[in-house]
Amino acid sequence: MQEFLQMGGYAGYVWSAYAITAVVLIATALWPGIRRRRLHAALRKRWQWERSE
């Protein structure tokens, strides 16, 4: 395990490359969901308001 984490002395390079990849991909993947929730909530609110007019 220790040996695996050390990556033959390249731990800093290998792990940081994978960590940055994970962070960028997760952020990219989450963004549309956040936007969708915001948009749908705003639309539902507006329709409700229109109905109560």
Partner: peptide, 18 residues
């Protein structure tokens, strides 16, 4: 591990696809 680069070659698995 790679015969020349050792474990640093593993970055290929994220670099080349990207």
């Amino acid at each position: 591990t790679d015969y020349q680069q050792g474990d640093s070659f593993r970055i290929i698995y994220v670099h080349v696809p990207a």
